[in-house]
Simulated assay, not measured.
Amino acid sequence: MLKKIKQLCSQNNLTISELEKKLNFGNGTIHKWGNAQPSVSKVKSVADYFNVDVNYLIYEDSYIFANKETMNVAKEYEELTDSQKALVRSYILLFKNGQPLQPES
């Protein structure tokens, strides 16, 4: 978790100390998370500050989405029918490559 927080701070031109001040945490609070279990409320505060999902901070798995909007889109995608999903994939390919997905035979 500490590694991801450092990365988010770096991407936002912010030090961990500055983040702690912005979130009204004590000095060194986040650095201690390398060896101690943080409270859920503090982790949520960091996630909310960076607009990321709490799970992104907690889990190392690459399939966890950093951005809440991306996560919401993925959830909506999962609720689609197979034919709707195929259409979405076709649109994605069209946007990326200028070529739609060819229908399966």
Rank of each mutant, 00 (worst) to 15 (best):
K3S: 07
G34V: 02
K22L: 12
V43F: 01
L57P: 02
T15R: 13
E20Q: 09
A74G: 04
S39Y: 12
V54C: 01
Q84F: 04
Y59H: 14
A86R: 02
N51T: 02
S45H: 05
S10P: 00
I64G: 01
W33C: 03
N35L: 12
P100C: 10
H31F: 03
I58P: 02
F25M: 07
D61I: 06
L87K: 06
E60D: 15
I16V: 15
S90F: 05
K42M: 05
V40F: 12
H31K: 11
L57I: 06
N12E: 04
R89E: 15
L23N: 01
E79S: 10
Q11F: 06
S17W: 01
S17L: 07
D61R: 15
N27L: 08
C9E: 00
D48A: 14
E76S: 14
N27P: 05
I92M: 15
N27E: 12
T81M: 08
S90R: 07
S45T: 05
N72K: 15
N27Q: 13
V40G: 02
Y49W: 11
I92L: 14
E76W: 09
F95E: 12
N97L: 10
A66T: 08
F25G: 09
N72V: 00
L2S: 10
S17P: 00
A74W: 10
T81K: 08
N24H: 13
I92K: 15
D82Y: 01
L19T: 01
N67H: 06
M71L: 13
L93I: 01
Q7D: 11
W33Q: 11
Q37G: 03
V73W: 15
Y91C: 09
D61E: 14
L8H: 01
Q11Y: 03
T29F: 03
D82T: 03
S62R: 12
P100V: 06
I64V: 15
L2V: 05
Q11K: 12
L23G: 07
F95W: 05
L93P: 00
K6S: 10
K44D: 00
T15V: 07
